[in-house]
Design a protein around this nucleic acid. Structure first.
Lengths: 192, 192
DNA sequence: AGTATCAACAGACCGACAGTCGGTTTGTCA
DNA sequence: TGACAAACCGACTGTCGGTCTGTTGATACT
């Protein structure tokens, strides 16, 4: 049971890779299953064998992207013990991650629409949002009852910064300004 | 040319009203044109005479909702001259507006997906976002170069608060806490 | 009054698309 | 070697957004 499983895995991963490219270039809605099939040179039956539907294919793509972004975030935080410093490092890493069009289109634009806001945030809960909440709680400057809401606002704020940055013309300068603004924002939010 | 024009206007408004209901209940994607036609008892030809497509119908719905929300905001700000106080009042009015499921589903969930993030924010630019920027500039506590980004973050943050509030079980208590948090947030952002 | 005009409406029709289903191939293992 | 099941195939279906060729009836004009 190895050649068979390997082949299946390969097909699945190939589909995810091809779909990632198409979803990024054209967006979820404008990408037809047909187009993925053609680009991947895979049959309809094969795709629907691995994924129950188009949204499941998208979920797999999203998961892979999230994994990568999270790894970058983890690397940025590595060794930083002070919660606010870690938060700051993570925010900067996030802004840098969003330079990648894949991240912007898949994670920020299509994900909430395809999964729905609720499921989108639940995914975040298990990834970024959970860590933000933990850091804020450890820091203690935000009243415990307000940590949840502030974590949400911080997450949404950083996403917004990323989106504004994505539309900016002058990229190197805008990125520097966005990072400075993010740090400023964090400082203001956490002032006692 | 009056009976004809009146009839057309009535049909158009009826379609917008019916579509508003369906879009709110089921979301944009899950609402078929067919369903709108049936619910409104209007023919396909009539709908496509008034709207070039499904997204245009949605845009009309969104516009009507926005108009209403903006009016509520304007009423809340009425007579308040100090920019930060006006901002605070507007934020609270916005949070109260989002108690309406129409506002949440149409303005916060479907609008960015249907119009695209860019056009969504351009709409905001002419409505809420523009006013936030003006208020921040008039206040002067935020450096001029950073006003734009901070206005975006404030807008996104308030939208997030609204969405979190929407999913909360205990509504009256959650609403009070959300409003307090919004005020707290604004204070922190604007402290020098 | 007769008629030309045009906005408003009607509904049959079309292409595209997501998803289904009854088969076929092929590696694995008893 | 033959039973089994995972992997794959592709014709087919239902639905949906959008188009197109009319028809109707109020209004403007002579």
């Amino acid at each position: 049971m190895n050649k068979k499983i390997d082949r299946g895995q390969a097909t699945r991963e190939h589909l995810v890779a091809v779909a990632t490219g198409l979803f990024t270039e054209q967006g979820y809605d404008a990408t037809s299953i047909e187009a993925v099939l053609r680009a991947a040179d895979v049959s309809r039956g094969a795709l629907y064998h691995h994924f129950p539907g188009k949204d499941a294919l998208f979920a797999a793509v999203l998961d892979a992207v999230y994994e990568r972004v999270e790894a970058e975030g983890a690397r940025a935080v590595e060794g930083v013990t002070e919660p606010v410093a870690a938060l700051r490092a993570a925010c900067l890493a996030w802004i840098r991650s969003t330079a990648d069009p894949v991240v912007r289109q898949v994670m920020l634009i299509d994900a909430p629409a395809v999964l729905g806001w609720q499921r989108w945030r639940e995914l975040d809960e298990r990834r970024a949002l959970g860590k933000i909440k933990a850091a804020l709680r450890r820091d203690g400057r935000i009243p415990a009852a307000r940590v949840d809401l502030f974590a949400h606002v911080l997450l949404a704020g950083m996403n917004e910064v990323a989106m504004v940055l994505a539309r900016a013309e002058d990229h190197p300068g805008a990125a520097a300004e966005a990072e400075a603004a993010a740090v400023d924002l964090l400082d203001r939010l956490l002032r006692t």
